[in-house]
Design a binder for these strands. Structure first.
Length: 488
RNA sequence: GCCCCAUUAGCUCAGUUUGGUAGAGCAACUGACUCUUAAUCAGUGGGUCGAAGGUUCGAGUCCUUCAUGGGGCACCA
């Protein structure tokens, strides 16, 4: 693993490094000839035959036939075969390819031609080592399978597994498509603080850090919501932010402590408007990134093209469990939880229990895109109440493939009521709830100046990517997911 | 934090049932080979079997603890 105790193969490479030095060859030159990428050569191959050119790449395989040698080299844009012959290079330079290994970078100058079997190849007139590799690369045929190595040494994963490289290219496309969609609709991309004196906008425990000069504790943000809404106050009617949130909680196939989220806010819109926006956004992004509006998931086909279903939270609960919310008494619901082996906190509130049931019984079955609506005010301290029933708020969550992807509501812009809601959160905190909204006076001050009625939406980008790429876990779509430190 | 599973050569994996000399392919090394392409042919080397204890005449294999990863539960939108 480390060169402190090299394996046999690593010792061989270090020895070759010494040999190169003895021959006056710099194994890590600052620059090498590279006029044209391999992708360009391949795409206009006919145009380049009979023209001398230079390119470079990493050696992926070596097939030596005595006085001639074939190699495959890859510069990250593509892979091409090169052909080296002793009568082209001379005995000395040809002999030096003994010092090259799979994994090394070389720059070659030569003429593209087609081999007998039609393989696009460069006949090399001269070459120069562009960078020595001191470890053997993972095996060419099976790539690298160990999930832990894939995550810890992502460079080996993307090097050895083309599908893994493609996935991260798709990830980039997805985020690009989100920007394209929102920009084209006149949304302004902004950046708000990651280091916050107070955290809010979600129920989660934060990471805490410290600023030396200011001598103050700071929190890594758990959401961007409260700052983006300040911008609504400040006269930006359509804003969005794409960035990392940090939540100090467990890790599983749906949760990484740092994750990428989108939040969008639109003045004079509401949760209905956000529903339309979200649906169109996801459809657009799917088409742009994976080129289709359907995904296969566990042998089922997820259809993003049809209008997304809209279902009431209470109806879904009733269908699945027969429980009538909110008529059914808390004791009965608790009894149901016990019967179904759903664990819950002793002093959990009514809606907390309902939420537990929803998570265990309903959520995993929401495979097709489903907007769930009618959430209780109790668990939505930043959302506006519905006009018909003050116990509920204008809010939806979007579920696809049994996962929560998005959360949106008509934003509460009444500062008096917001203050009351914060107070209720404080009470919940005092009675032992660890994940509540902070009482954010600075945010309230902004609301007091007047925030336009607005819709806001948050979307977990990593989860969206997981669904669109068919990945099994959020860890597979994050380049460097958080892992425990490995001791040697 | 709790339960279950995995960890063997650089990589991919056998071997664990029933304890008895550590295996294969690729990669590496030596030799042959001037259109090969998972090149081929002949040969060679490479292991703290995740770590530490224990049981045993003898442990990759059985037991305990620990580490890392995975799955589940809990926590957590």
């Amino acid at each position: 693993m480390s060169l402190l105790k090299p394996t046999e193969q690593e010792r061989v490479r270090i020895e070759k490094l010494k040999q190169l030095k003895l021959k006056g060859i710099n194994p890590y030159p600052a620059r090498v000839p590279y006029e044209i990428s391999i992708k360009e050569i391949l795409s206009e191959f006919r145009q380049f035959t009979e023209t001398e050119l230079s390119t470079a790449g990493r050696i992926l395989s070596i097939r030596s036939h005595g006085k001639s040698t074939f190699m495959d080299i890859d510069d990250g844009t593509g892979k091409i075969q090169i052909y080296l012959r002793v009568d082209d290079l001379g005995e000395d330079r040809y002999g030096l390819i003994e010092l090259l290994d799979i994994g090394d970078f070389i720059s070659v100058r030569g003429i593209p031609f087609l081999t007998r079997t039609g393989e696009r190849t460069i006949r090399v007139h001269s070459y120069i080592l562009a960078g020595k590799s001191l470890h053997p690369l993972p095996e060419k045929w099976h790539g690298i399978k160990d999930i832990e190595t894939k995550a810890r040494q992502r460079y080996l994963d993307t090097l050895a597994n083309p599908e893994s490289k493609l996935l991260f290219q798709t990830r980039s496309k997805i985020i690009q498509a989100i920007r394209k969609f929102l920009d084209s609709r006149g949304f302004l991309e902004v950046e708000t603080p990651i280091l916050q004196p107070l955290y809010g906008g979600a129920f989660a425990r934060p990471f805490i850090t410290y600023h030396n000069t200011l001598e103050m504790n700071l929190y890594l943000r758990i959401a961007t919501e409260l700052y983006l809404k300040r911008l609504l106050v400040g006269g930006f009617p359509k804003v969005y932010e794409i960035g990392k949130n940090f939540r100090n909680e467990g890790i599983d196939h749906n949760h990484n402590p740092e994750f990428t989220a989108l939040e969008v806010y639109q003045a004079f819109s509401d949760f209905e408007g956000m529903m339309r926006l979200t649906e169109e956004l996801i459809r657009f992004v799917a088409k742009e990134s994976i080129g289709k509006e359907s995904i296969s998931y566990n042998e089922e086909n997820i259809d993003l093209e049809q209008p997304f279903r809209r279902r009431k939270l209470t109806e879904l609960i009733k269908e699945k469990t027969g429980i009538n919310v909110p008529e059914t008494k808390k004791e009965e619901i608790a009894a149901y939880c016990q019967k179904e082996r759903i664990e819950f906190n002793e002093n959990a509130s009514y809606w907390k229990l309902v939420d537990e049931i929803f998570k265990h019984k309903v959520e995993p079955e929401l495979i097709q895109p489903t907007f769930v609506v009618e959430y209780p005010v109790e668990t939505s301290p930043l959302a506006k109440r519905t006009e018909e029933n003050p116990n509920f708020v204008e809010r939806f969550e979007l579920f696809i493939a049994g996962r929560e992807l998005a959360n949106a509501f008509s934003e509460l812009n009444n500062p008096i009521e917001q203050a009351e809601r914060f107070l209720e959160q404080q009470k919940a905190r005092e009675s032992g709830d660890v994940a509540t909204e902070s009482f954010d006076e600075d945010f309230l001050l902004a609301l007091e100046y007047g925030m336009p009625p607005a819709g806001g939406m948050g979307l977990g980008i990593d989860r969206l990517i997981t669904v669109l790429t068919g990945a099994n876990s959020i860890r597979e779509v994050i380049l460097f997911p958080l892992l425990r430190r490995k001791q040697r």
